[in-house]
Computed example of a mutant assay.
Amino acid sequence: MIALWDTTGTEVVKALAAERRSAGGVTSGLALTLVAVVDERHVRDTEQAAMIAAQQHPCRLLIVVRRNVLDQESRLDAEIMVGGRLGPCEAVIMRMHGRLALHAESVALPLLAPDVPVVTWWHGDPPEKIAYDPLGVVADRRITDSAQSADPDGALKLRAEDYAPGDTDLTWTRLTPWRTTLAGAFDTADSAATSAKITADPHDPSSRLLSGWLQARLGVKPKITDSHGSGLSEVELTLASGTTLTVHGNDGTATLSRTGFPDRTMPLLARPLGEELAEELRRLDPDEPYAAALAATTGLKGLNDRDSKRVHIWHDPALAEKPEPEESETSTARTAKKPAKASS
């Protein structure tokens, strides 16, 4: 590992090139550049997740930590690792202090691996609009996580309003085992679904996206029953023939019950963050089922018809911390500072 304190972007580029030459074959065959925007408390989790994901997708990992954006003095600290504890990836951890944090792209863009896709992942609250962050504008795919928001319900609505093809959410990724199990159970259904019921935390964004997915695919709006804090625990589908399909999750397994058939037990494991991230890195095309589920959940339509290209919108979060004085206050201050005219 190479540590550079109070450095520049140019020095980071040179140090990464030198470390790649020293590592030799470890650096060949990069599949993508993964830009992770995190806060300090999530750096270790991000490293662990990237280590798991890199086993399937060798990548250049750029971890951007924005700190103290209101500071007047800017500083860049960086750590560079090629191989080592993070496996088959090249990693640059950049801690940006002061106003430099608002221009992270000036340091990150020269570090993108050439001729490979770029994926940006916000491990924490993403910006209100992804176009506010140039690191999201340059990405071919953008990954958020509504479950980490202080307001998960509002986060889903925000993601739908700001959606562009290429966006996805780890809240949706966590539903893959449930969606796979339900789709497999419905393959043998003898008629269409007439109603659906989900037992889950009504404020869990995953359960709301699952409801949207069932509504988009089956044409019925599920009823969500409170599971009293146990998360997503059961999905029940009633068919036109009177048959009932129920999937009940419990401690890493799913029990599939169907009218007239014996129960079946199948795995339904909770995956680590790295496995969820690796799943999203397998595809770079628009995730149309996610867009359809998000549209059904929020009531917004035409998400898949939007333009996938984004244009950067300058947004200074410091303005919310240091609002400009009102006109009346400014005028009063200027009047007070004017020297009195000498009397004749």
Rank of each mutant, 00 (worst) to 15 (best):
A15E: 11
A15I: 08
A15H: 08
L16A: 08
L16Q: 09
L16D: 03
L16G: 01
L16M: 11
L16T: 09
A17F: 05
A18E: 15
A18M: 10
E19Q: 15
E19L: 13
R20G: 06
R20Y: 03
R21D: 12
S22C: 04
S22I: 12
S22W: 11
S22Y: 12
A23I: 07
G24D: 06
G25I: 11
G25P: 10
V26D: 09
T27N: 03
S28D: 14
S28Q: 14
L30I: 00
A31V: 01
A31T: 13
A31C: 06
A31L: 07
L32F: 06
L34K: 06
L34Y: 04
V35T: 11
A36R: 02
V38E: 04
D39Q: 15
D39W: 07
E40Q: 14
R41N: 12
V43N: 00
V43C: 06
R44V: 15
R44W: 12
D45F: 08
T46E: 00
T46P: 03
T46R: 05
A50I: 02
A50M: 08
A50V: 07
A50E: 00
A50T: 01
M51H: 14
M51E: 14
M51D: 13
M51I: 11
I52S: 11
A54P: 01
Q55L: 12
Q55Y: 10
Q55I: 01
Q56T: 12
Q56Y: 05
Q56A: 14
Q56P: 00
H57A: 05
H57K: 02
H57Q: 06
P58L: 02
R60W: 02
R60L: 07
R60T: 07
R60I: 05
L61A: 01
L62V: 04
L62W: 09
L62S: 03
L62I: 07
I63P: 02
I63M: 11
V64F: 00
V65E: 12
R66Q: 15
R67S: 15
N68S: 15
V69G: 10
L70D: 15
D71G: 12
Q72H: 12
Q72N: 12
E73G: 04
E73P: 01
E73N: 13
E73S: 14
S74N: 04
L76E: 09
L76T: 08
D77I: 03
A78Q: 07
E79W: 10
E79C: 06
I80R: 01
I80C: 04
I80G: 00
M81H: 13
V82L: 04
V82R: 03
V82C: 09
G83K: 07
G83W: 07
G84R: 07
G84N: 04
R85I: 10
R85G: 14
L86Q: 10
L86G: 12
L86W: 07
G87S: 04
G87C: 05
P88I: 05
P88C: 07
P88W: 03
C89M: 13
E90M: 03
E90W: 00
A91H: 00
V92T: 04
V92L: 10
I93A: 10
I93S: 09
I93T: 14
I93G: 05
M94C: 14
M94T: 11
M94Y: 09
R95E: 13
R95Y: 03
H97G: 04
R99E: 10
R99P: 08
R99K: 11
R99F: 06
L100C: 09
L100M: 13
A101I: 05
A101T: 05
A101E: 08
A101C: 05
L102F: 01
H103W: 11
